[in-house]
Simulated assay, not measured.
Amino acid sequence: MASVLDAALARRSSPKVTDAAPDDAALVALLDAAGRVADHAALRPWRVIALRGPARERLGAALAAAAGAEGEAAAKLAGKPLRAPLLLAVVAVTTPDHPKVPEWEQEASAAGVAHLLSLLLDDAGWGVMWRTGPFTRHPLVAAMHGLAPNERLLGWLYVGGRTEARRPEGRTDPLAAARLTTLD
């Protein structure tokens, strides 16, 4: 069994995926694990919306409308959610004016769920890529997802079958050393 370190080092974004996708039961099991991220005051300030089939088409239409796009530009935007059979919209569900947990911390917890879920999906053999874009928080896109006033879309995990035959190698560049600062 691979360690968490091994899984993290092997994780790669999969910009292209096949039409296979995990079912809701598999997602619930992974979300049970992903939901264990740091969560001050146990608010569970997140939820995930699974978009399949026509829901992806409705999202594409909302993206095109949010952009005010027409013709070829609208078709291009509308096609983006069709790149994967399953999109997982990750939503921060904040409690405004919480006495102990500021909204930014609640959003950080929801982002932690998104990242851990992407790692778990990758480790389970699925292709996954976290996508955002300029219309992630547009009112038309929020309405398409049925978001409440205290909810903010953080992006979508595009999920499908892996196109490569074997797990890709992890990064070899020493990026962490350049990002660590030590204070004494």
Score class of each variant (00 low, 15 high):
124 A>N: 06
26 A>G: 10
47 R>S: 01
137 R>L: 08
179 R>W: 09
90 V>Y: 05
168 P>C: 03
30 L>D: 01
104 W>A: 12
183 L>E: 13
139 P>T: 02
116 L>P: 01
82 L>V: 09
151 E>D: 01
125 G>V: 05
135 F>D: 10
108 A>M: 11
57 E>D: 15
58 R>D: 13
175 L>G: 13
46 W>G: 03
79 G>L: 05
3 S>Y: 10
17 V>H: 09
173 D>P: 00
24 D>V: 09
169 E>W: 00
64 A>H: 10
120 L>T: 00
56 R>E: 04
7 A>T: 11
68 G>P: 06
157 L>T: 05
120 L>N: 08
125 G>Y: 09
125 G>K: 02
139 P>E: 08
149 P>C: 07
146 G>A: 05
69 A>K: 04
68 G>Y: 03
84 A>G: 01
53 G>V: 09
170 G>D: 07
162 R>Q: 08
142 A>E: 12
24 D>Q: 14
15 P>C: 03
155 G>L: 07
149 P>E: 07
119 L>A: 02
154 L>F: 02
44 R>S: 10
122 D>G: 00
101 V>P: 07
49 I>V: 11
163 T>K: 14
74 A>E: 10
5 L>M: 12
122 D>S: 14
46 W>E: 06
130 W>V: 06
151 E>P: 04
18 T>A: 01
41 A>H: 08
138 H>F: 02
178 A>D: 13
24 D>N: 12
170 G>K: 11
161 G>H: 04
40 H>P: 03
96 P>R: 02
89 A>W: 05
44 R>D: 13
172 T>L: 12
122 D>H: 11
22 P>A: 09
156 W>N: 10
55 A>S: 12
73 A>V: 11
7 A>K: 13
3 S>M: 04
76 K>V: 10
96 P>N: 09
112 G>Q: 01
141 V>Y: 04
133 G>H: 02
158 Y>D: 08
144 M>Q: 15
76 K>P: 04
79 G>D: 04
154 L>I: 03
